[in-house]
Amino acid sequence: MDSNRILRDVGATVAATAASAGASWAAYNYLNGQAAEARTVIPHRTDDAPNGDGIYWPDGTGPHRYTRDAAVDLFLAVFGDSTAAGLGADIADETPGVQVARRVAAETGKTVRYANKAIVGATSKGLAAQIDAMFITGERPDLAVILVGANDVTARNGIRTSARRLGEAVALLVAQEAEVVVGTCPDLGVITAIPQPLRTVLRRWGLSLAAAQRGAVRAAGGRAVPMADLLASEFLAKPEHLFSPDQYHPSAAGYALAADILLPEVLAAIDEWGPTPLPQPPEVSEAVEQRRIITRVRHLLGRTHDRVTAGE
């Protein structure tokens, strides 16, 4: 995710959403004011994520420098946005891609080459270019992990168009015999630096995109991991621990949690998970759902009704 993009584009996102919902001009101005407030809270990031490219051995060492004649068992490439790159981590070992690479090496006993091609600020539109840039060099990954979606929401990219572009990127990799695991759009509702009700507007858009991404990824032959559904409760419970100081990107602990979520599908993709069935994720992000204003009102009305009924 790119905090600069969300703060630059969020006003236009709100305008489009408010207009489509028939919201009043006063409501639009209120949400736009919240966007301006958020700009003062979330800093503009111009730095790059730490680079952890190289070879990781089963004994836990690495990264070792990769050369064309190096013997490796598995080539893992990561594509996507700033979350895929690991922005918010202080060192390369804290980024999600490196954490996945190390764990795959440890779990399988394989020597893993890791390369991160993700670009800070990228949307689904940029995935094909990231992949093509690798293909031009003659390299083909055995396994690819993609994390993307938040910038599509804040850039107001269409849900169907964004999902289609992601599906096309997955198809490019599958056509070259790569196994592909995609972490779908995260839940923007966990970013408390974005005030309500603006946060809910962005959250609903993101969850709709995640659902569309899941279908597109599966249709293209990839594996989809619902990051919003699996991570929201943890980030809501421990925001000071799981967010980096910018209050927007994950911290080292947040990325470790993301790697935990991705690892089962990654291992299953390369036939290393074993006979135990993969864990089944929930269909909705219940923790964030409970924090929606309308949900809290419904619960309040329900409790009031129960008390009235009990007194009759």
Rank of each mutant, 00 (worst) to 15 (best):
M1N: 12
D2C: 13
L7D: 01
L7R: 07
V10P: 03
V10T: 02
G11L: 11
A12T: 11
A16Y: 06
A16V: 09
T17M: 10
A19P: 07
G22W: 05
A26V: 13
A26R: 01
A27E: 15
A35S: 14
T40P: 12
V41R: 07
I42W: 04
D48Y: 11
I55N: 11
Y56S: 11
Y56Q: 00
P58M: 15
G60H: 04
G62D: 13
H64T: 01
D69A: 02
A70H: 07
L74D: 02
L76I: 10
V78R: 14
D81E: 12
S82M: 08
A84W: 03
E94G: 09
E94D: 15
V100Q: 09
R102I: 04
R103M: 10
V104Y: 02
E107A: 11
T108P: 06
T111E: 11
R113F: 09
K117F: 10
G121Q: 10
S124Q: 10
S124D: 00
A128W: 11
A128Q: 15
Q130I: 10
I131P: 02
I136C: 06
T137Q: 08
T137H: 01
G138W: 06
L143S: 15
L143A: 08
A144Q: 08
A150T: 01
A150E: 06
T154R: 00
A155K: 15
R156W: 04
R156E: 00
R156K: 14
G158R: 03
T161A: 03
R165N: 12
L166E: 05
G167R: 10
E168I: 04
A169N: 08
A171R: 14
A175V: 08
E177T: 14
E179M: 07
E179N: 05
E179A: 07
V180P: 00
V180T: 03
C185Y: 07
L188N: 05
G189T: 13
V190I: 10
T192S: 12
I194P: 00
L198S: 02
R199I: 09
L202W: 05
W205P: 03
L207A: 02
L209C: 12
A210H: 07
A212K: 03
R223L: 06
A224D: 02
M227T: 13
A228T: 03
L230T: 06
A232L: 02
A232H: 01
S233T: 15
E234M: 09
A237T: 07
L242S: 05
S244G: 08
P250N: 01
L257Q: 06
A258T: 14
V266F: 02
A268Y: 07
A269R: 02
P275E: 05
P275N: 07
T276V: 13
L278M: 10
Q280D: 15
S285Q: 09
E286F: 08
A287V: 06
E289D: 05
Q290M: 00
I294P: 08
T295A: 13
T295L: 05
R296E: 06
V297H: 12
R298W: 05
R303E: 13
T304E: 15
